[in-house]
Design a protein around this nucleic acid. Structure first.
Lengths: 252, 252
DNA sequence: CGTGCATTTGACCACCTTCAATAAAGGTGG
DNA sequence: CCACCTTTATTGAAGGTGGTCAAATGCACG
């Protein structure tokens, strides 16, 4: 039922060992520090958090964990793109979200992880034991409040996605998606908003929008022919007519 | 754009006035107290919370607030059923959820409410100013933690609903819905799990499942003919074959 | 008993899916 | 570096699930 990880894990284990050495200085150069839950912490609090954290990397398509696994760790993304997804018994998949540096995932309870997490690009993660991070919420109240804020914001995004999945047409879905990615990635690197980096496959996009890869491909072609986007160089898309794209995305 | 409230508000204002008198004793008999965020509080903490709360009622179809309104209050449901929803400019609606006693809603930020909230049945609400409840999160840490727990749980439900909206067939959606309602309402009253109370209209169900009322109606008819449910007395549905229903709901 | 609204049922149609073929991109080994 | 193979993306044709339009039935209320 769960897809098989085709790449052996040895190199990852090695990365783990390496990261142990790099652990202390790693927060200093963490590009996610200003956008993640860590952004509310003082220097000494960051240091305390780094003591319970370990660092690991994954290669594209590697599984971080699977739906139902014991939820022992919380993950912070330092670098790269992660997809989180749920599956039906017969293999139909729904991608819950694409996560980028500064995002966290895996804060589940004793019922185990509620979704699977996999690397899309090369990724760089910061991992904390769930039990210890829950203690930190008590010791550092503002951390707990920040996590509540982020979770509420996530909930709102997910509710927006419900509107998309339940009520938008294929073309509207695609426009909403590209705009959302533009917004999300522009917070990370300094690519101007009109150029959007899409590291995920057509299959991922389809499973995120409740469509098939064929429909995604066709709609992209139409948007391109209509002069709304262009595909200069994969995996980048350029938004040529943001105004009209926004209009379509809103269902207008 | 926003639907008009057809029932005048005078009676509600009167309810508000009445509730001021009843405020102090109201928590004592609140049936939602054991299932809501209040469940973690001691007697004296409940009393403090009731000092910043007011009590109000609404009649079926009345609007509690609309998407975009300034998010000044948090609401706890004491009695009745509420629907929360989002709309596209052209009127397409997505119902985000049906809420019951013990559920809260309206914890939004300065961007305003992210969805509209309306009464489905006669409802009985407990209302708290957002600013004051945020202070309580600081004063009573376990309240903040409880709200985080509830919010995480909500997020998981919403992610399950993404899977439903994006990947399930109409029949599977209906079965999932009826089972979810059975689970939810059985926590509230003591109706045996096989009899499910559905206070919402076909239109509400359709907009929750990303379908049309016709499809909802047709699928209900099919499920009824297949002996999986029966419609003894509206608005109640009886589950005759829970096993098969669960199988269909899971996509098997 | 008639009016108004919600629900059910029917006929037809469209958007998206499914199936299939082709094209392009990426990875491996000679 | 190119040939070969695999994977991914695009494009085309046919089909189905669910939507749209329309009418009938049921139900509550005056």
């Amino acid at each position: 039922m769960k897809s098989v990880d085709l790449i052996d894990n040895v190199s990852v284990a090695q990365s783990d060992i390496t990261s142990q050495d790099l652990r202390a200085p790693s927060c200093d150069h963490c590009i996610a520090r200003l956008t993640s839950m860590c952004s509310v912490l003082e220097e000494h609090e960051i240091r305390k958090l780094s003591e319970i954290s370990s660092h690991l990397t994954k290669r594209p398509k590697q599984i971080i964990y699977s739906e139902g696994d014991s939820a022992d760790y919380l993950y912070n993304i330092r670098e790269g793109c992660v997809r989180i997804s749920k599956m039906l018994a017969d293999g139909r998949r729904q991608i819950i979200g694409f996560l980028f540096p500064g995002d966290f995932f895996g804060l589940d309870d004793q019922n185990g992880y509620s979704y699977s997490a996999e690397a899309i690009t090369e990724i760089d993660l910061c991992r904390m034991p769930r039990k210890k991070i829950l203690e930190k919420f008590v010791q550092i109240p503002k951390l707990g409040h920040k996590v509540l804020d982020i979770t509420r914001s996530e909930l709102q995004n997910t509710q927006d996605q419900m509107l998309l999945l339940g009520r938008k047409k294929a073309k509207e879905k695609l426009c909403s998606f590209v705009l959302a990615m533009a917004k999300k990635t522009s917070q990370i690197d300094n690519i101007p908003q009109s150029s959007v980096f899409l590291p995920m496959s057509r299959s991922d996009i389809a499973d995120y929008l409740g469509l098939t890869i064929e429909t995604v491909s066709r709609q992209f072609t139409i948007l391109s022919k209509d002069g709304i986007i262009s595909f200069d160089g994969n995996p980048n898309v350029t938004i040529l007519n943001a105004k009209q794209m926004t209009l379509i995305a809103a269902g207008g």
